[in-house]
Write a protein that binds this DNA or RNA. Structure first.
Length: 243
DNA sequence: CGATTCCCCTGATAGC
DNA sequence: TGCTATCAGGGGAATC
């Protein structure tokens, strides 16, 4: 499912393909990302916004399918196909995209350690995994990467923020950057329906250490990867080396 | 306010 | 084999 690395991958690919083209007479000047939202900006200040949620796809020059929700046609005859099997995703045209800014916390790849410590301090009773996925707290991380980040940081997903020692906070912050960047480099994780703007699968699936690996051996310590439910969402972690 | 739970949808999977 | 029940998951709304 598209999280920050997947949406960022689509953004970079789309930017190369559509900046400078026109859509309904409006010139495209930028393709941005905020949290997991992809934003196409027009020269008049208006924007198209997309949220892919679980099964959304944005494919440049893709072929329409039964799951196609909309086809955007550019002035040169090329097109952008928006597919979504489960219909959770959405897109909308807005005169001004500034409104969404306040609904999100700092970008996961932009926050510094000092600021990260600072915002954590405001949520002492929260469980660390749901907090990492809270877009108002920090923007861009979802279920796959929160599991992978906490594994890399050796922190158990149910841990309350106030129990984390400075070393663990530092490790979480460091691995947010490391893992998201590595995932972007591999064009994201195609665990199920995700494909990039060119219709290709991402390559990061093979690097996942715990997500969807319930019952398998921990690649770090040989312990068994467990899966539990936290707030209705599955969380994967090594029962031996994540504390 | 913060923490938690429910719910939208539908293909895949488990269970019988 | 084939049918049915359950599951997954982002995030907004509702609830505690």
């Amino acid at each position: 499912m598209p999280e920050l690395p997947e949406v960022e991958t689509i953004r970079r690919q789309l930017r190369e393909k559509i900046v400078g083209k026109k859509l309904d007479g409006k010139k495209i000047v930028a393709v941005r990302r905020r949290a997991k939202i992809l934003i196409i900006d027009f020269s008049d200040g208006s924007s198209l916004m997309f949220h892919l949620k679980l099964t959304g796809q944005l494919i440049f020059n893709g072929e329409p399918s039964p799951y196609t929700r909309h086809v955007f046609k550019f002035d040169d005859g090329s097109r952008l196909v928006f597919n979504d099997i489960r219909k959770f995703g959405w897109w909308k045209y807005v005169k001004d995209s500034k409104d969404i800014e306040k609904t999100f916390g700092p970008e996961a790849l932009e926050i510094g350690l000092k600021d990260f410590k600072n915002i954590l301090g405001k949520r002492p009773n929260a469980k660390i995994k749901p907090l990492l996925m809270d877009q108002k707290f920090i923007a861009g991380i979802g279920n796959i990467y929160s599991d992978e980040i906490l594994f890399a940081a050796k922190v158990q997903p149910l841990r309350r923020v106030k129990t984390l020692i400075p070393k663990e906070v530092g490790a979480i912050w460091l691995n947010i950057g490391r893992i998201l960047k590595a995932a972007i480099k591999n064009r994201g994780t195609s665990e199920r329906d995700y494909i990039d703007a060119l219709g290709k699968k991402g390559d990061y699936l093979k690097y996942l250490k715990v997500y969807r690996r319930e019952g398998q051996k921990c690649p770090r310590c040989g312990g068994i990867v467990k899966r539990i439910k936290i707030g209705g969402r599955s969380a994967h972690f090594c029962s031996k080396c994540q504390r």
